[in-house]
Design a protein around this nucleic acid. Structure first.
Lengths: 220, 220
DNA sequence: CTTTTATTTTAAGTTAACTTAACTTTGTGA
DNA sequence: TCACAAAGTTAAGTTAACTTAAAATAAAAG
């Protein structure tokens, strides 16, 4: 490895694959904070290396090679995240940015060693699955956005969908973390904010916040 | 940070400063495996940023800013090395290459956290001193190259001067590691190889090997 | 079905970090 | 002390990864 930029594009493509395994160049440009033209440029290079299937104006698809390549980068990223959180004790709102830098470094041997130390973990600190070395991906529990719950329903947090400091620090403040139980007490129809019960305390949370927290519905 | 190349040049300059705090561009080019012209190019850029003092055909000097910058990179590298060795359990012949990639990543916060985990270590796995966050450098014990010892003299290994896999793996095989006691039994004057006693076993080692192992002389 | 809007591509140009080749300066050894 | 090799610099060119602006295509909306 040493193709930091290519690796970034590939994993961005991988992460933005929708249900039909199609990606819009548009979205990549935004996520990577570069111009559309830069994306087009890179797509040509990736296609030349048979990592993606690309024809002008068509949506982007990963080849099997490209996909396994991308999966490996995601694997590195998520193992780093968990390692930093569990072994080094970095708070969960810091691990994403840190791992963003580290994911391109570290030999496969190092990554595998960390995986062993972590006892072959299945999910990173945000609840996202960690691809195994053979490319298999742990199955996630069925989950829905917290904002989809009705009044009186309960959920266990299984994943969050926003890795920004602000967001995660606030979640930690009100006690939202993985495996935490949340009960919806009331929903205010005018702005879809909700009153929720978390570990015995009530909080009012916005629709935007609830949209980004995913829960597994459970009986209360 | 994000100036990987500049950081590499700076730390290469720092590490190659001789007793008069002068560095030859020549040496840098070789260590970095680039052309002399590339070095000249970069020197101009570093000078423009006041990180070095540079005039054509003169030897290179670091400014105070440049030096503290460089020291910080060395610090990162050596903390990574020790962390990988002690916490992750990577063998000592692997840590240098791995740290070479990691030294440019990781926030200062992460580096400091690792330093705490390691209990403010003074030396890396090769015996080199780790600059503290304030720039101070632990004093090394007086040491001489093993090849300087006379017959019957004894030394404790305090540092090695070559980080290549081959070299370090071989050292490990014959039992040479930091703090290991070595006794010189015989010196063969025709090739300066020596017969040494290490943990009860005798080995014949070449002058080249002995040159790269540094010991503190002790009574036997 | 045509027009408008959104998305994507092409074209031309920039910057950082290199290269090789030719030139200049420095310092060494007979 | 001076010739010449070693070290260092300059000049010109390359490549990867970008940029902006203009042109082309696709998608949506009347």
């Amino acid at each position: 490895m040493r193709n930091i930029s290519k690796e970034d594009y590939l994993s961005a493509i991988y992460k933005n694959i929708d249900s039909n395994s199609k990606v819009k160049a548009n979205v990549i440009a935004e996520k990577m904070d570069v111009s559309n033209a830069a994306v087009t440029d890179m797509l040509k290079k990736l296609a030349k290396e048979s990592l993606i299937i690309y024809e002008p104006y068509k949506t982007i698809k990963l080849t099997p090679t490209g996909e396994s390549y991308a999966k490996n980068i995601v694997r590195r990223h998520r193992i780093w995240e968990l390692f930093l959180h569990q072994i080094v004790g970095l708070p969960w709102d810091k691990v994403h940015d840190e791992a963003e830098n580290l994911e391109h470094s570290g030999s496969d041997e190092l990554i595998n060693r960390m995986e062993v130390m972590l006892n072959f973990p299945e999910f990173d600190p945000h609840g996202d699955p960690i691809p195994a070395i053979d490319g298999s991906i742990p199955k996630q529990r069925d989950s829905v956005s917290l904002s989809k719950l009705k009044e009186k329903e309960c959920g266990l947090v299984v994943r969050v969908n926003d890795f920004s400091q602000n967001f995660l620090v606030y979640l930690a403040q009100i006690g939202i973390e993985l495996k935490q139980k949340i009960e919806v007490k009331e929903i205010r129809s005018f702005d879809n904010s909700m009153l929720v019960l978390i570990a015995g305390n009530e909080f009012n949370i916005s629709k935007t916040l609830a949209d980004n927290v995913f829960v597994e519905i459970v009986k209360n």
